[in-house]
Design a protein around this nucleic acid. Structure first.
Length: 210
DNA sequence: ACCCAGGTGGCCC
DNA sequence: GGGCCACATGGG
């Protein structure tokens, strides 16, 4: 049986906030960069980091592959965790060249489940980042679950679990399977989360469940 | 001086 | 599976 509250929530959010125009990036590879840089980081800082990379002409897999670590670190410093994230960007493009000749298009031209498994095997790509890449770069219907999604879902009593896969499955089970819809819904949940954050809607501390 | 942000990997039990 | 920690910058 479908839980009809979910689609109603989507419609209410769309009425309240309107279309969100995600993902804010010019190319699929910029989505990948942004998804890694955005990990536990304010988006404004990510924009600064991406602008720095753009100024250096470094927004391509080849340039990330060939650039020295110190150069990447200096460019992405505003996004925080800059050493970790440099390692993650390197790991991604190294994988991309090894497995797909540096072509995102090739990487994305496989079935979604295989793509997800492959992304998860790369250092620094966890579940949310993998789903963000699948949804916003590959444009395939994989629902993205982030901290806001969990908090809002718990607060509304939609589900009790904190397990990523279970929450993802909950949304996918109760919504039409559509990349466009998943795209907008995730962005709207972030919009609501930002709106609420601060007042009586604390960031949960501790583990990330399973 | 806090608290927060579009998480993940590593280690422990 | 769950719990804790390191990772780092910039804005409110």
């Amino acid at each position: 049986m479908k839980d009809t509250r979910v689609f109603k929530l989507y419609k209410a959010l769309y009425q309240a906030f309107g279309p969100q125009h995600w993902w804010p990036a010019k190319t699929p590879f910029e989505v990948v960069i942004g998804a890694i840089l955005a990990q536990n980081t304010n988006w404004g800082n990510v924009e600064k980091a991406i602008a720095n990379l753009r100024r250096g002409g470094m927004l391509s897999p080849k340039k990330i592959l060939e650039s020295r670590k110190s150069k990447i670190e200096n460019r992405i410093r505003p996004s925080g965790y800059y050493r970790q994230k440099t390692r993650k960007l390197k790991a991604f493009v190294e994988h991309l060249f090894k497995k797909h000749n540096g072509s995102l298009k090739k990487m994305f031209s496989q079935n979604m489940k295989a793509l997800r498994g492959e992304l998860l095997s790369i250092h620094g790509i966890g579940e949310e980042t993998a789903d963000s890449i699948i949804l916003y770069a590959a444009e395939k219907p994989s629902f993205v679950v982030d901290a806001y999604t969990k908090r809002i879902g718990h607060r509304l009593g939609l589900f009790k679990t904190s397990g990523y896969d279970e929450i993802k499955a909950y949304f996918e089970k109760n919504l039409p399977c559509s990349a466009k819809l998943y795209n907008e819904f995730h962005a709207l949940l972030v919009a609501l989360g930002k709106e609420l954050s601060g007042r009586n809607f604390p960031r949960s501390r501790g583990g990330r469940g399973s």
